[in-house]
Nucleic acid binder design. Structure first.
Lengths: 195, 195
DNA sequence: GTCTATAGTCGGATAGAC
DNA sequence: GTCTATCCGACTATAGAC
């Protein structure tokens, strides 16, 4: 707690994005969340956009390192699905999904936000892709699949589900459950014929 | 062209959401897009939030009626996938997906936007669900699936892909292609054993 | 590095003339 | 129904004291 001002601003930006959304992420509200003066946003980061961009980079860097080990240890499709579910829950709880979704929404109209957002998302994509590629290579009918494309589709689906969950939590839960049933069925039925 | 003021505001709100995003959807910018005076937003709709909400209702109402017939004519999983792809492309081109994504992002922090957004999304979900339910019922291994949950997952995925496409068009195309390969493979391989 | 103060702009919303 | 004019608060950003 009470870290240096720069860090407080980075974390204030994160929590403001999470709770107020991209439309409420102003220098003033971020500074308030960080407990520092509003002018310091511009002193340390030059502009609000730069602070937001730096904030997602900051958050993404710390998280993904934690995943690398866990994803690397996975050796079956079933394990991958279980880990995926666990990571999804953790990311949701940390607010990383909500923040990324808000940045993504903001980046549609504000090109300055796009690079950092893409980078933050790509950290996940790369991790998912590497684990996916390793597992699917051992499943014959899955060899033809584009793991990079699938990894991107999975990341996009998480974003969509996060936003949907914000307006209809029950519906989103149903969607997740249905996807789990589907993937689970695929993992057991036509997947076993390996090599 | 040059419809009555109310309609112009509804359409101005739509195109502003589409091009400026939720963070740029102010009474002034909407009125400018509509070519009318800013005060009329409040005269006709009371508040910006109400106008935005009414705008998505307005847009959703007109679209879905067009779909009902087309979805109703579908009689195989393959046809459903083809139609789904076509509708997805049309919705993207019209900007309906972009607008819904922005409303969804805004609704996370602004509960006033949530009801209309949920309703707009649900129009799709209901259509997808009904077509999905009809088709999957004829495929034995698919009987256990929750079509409502799947329909919600599909809608959420479209939203996520739309936002992802805004910052990485190439990556989103890859994701869509991968999903098409996957669903296509599922539609032909283990799906044929009907009844 | 951090603060106050302030310039200048843009936002939501209302009053009242036409 | 539509306009101008306006209040007032919030915003980005900067200048300058400490």
């Amino acid at each position: 707690m009470a870290a240096d001002t720069r860090t407080r601003l980075l974390e204030g930006a994160f929590s403001t994005l999470r709770t107020q959304g991209i439309a409420g992420a102003s220098a003033r509200s971020i500074a308030a969340a960080a407990g520092v003066n509003q002018a310091l946003v511009f002193y340390h980061f030059g502009s609000v956009d730069e602070l937001l961009a730096e904030s997602v980079r900051h958050a993404a860097r710390r998280r993904v390192e934690t995943y690398r080990d866990r994803l690397g240890a996975v050796s079956s499709l079933r394990e991958l699905l279980d880990l995926g579910r666990a990571l999804h829950a953790e990311e949701r709880a940390e607010g990383n999904l909500a923040v990324l979704a808000q940045m993504l929404a903001g980046a549609q109209a504000d090109p300055q936000l796009a690079p950092a957002t893409t980078a933050g998302l790509h950290l996940w994509v790369a991790e998912i892709e590497s684990a996916l590629g390793r597992i699917l290579a051992s499943i014959k009918p899955a060899r033809a699949l584009d793991t990079g494309g699938l990894a991107r589709a999975i990341a996009a689906t998480f974003i969509g589900l996060e936003l949907y969950g914000g307006v209809d939590a029950q519906g989103a839960t149903r969607a997740v459950t249905a996807l789990e049933q589907l993937t689970s069925a695929l993992a057991t039925a036509p997947a076993d014929p390996a090599t």
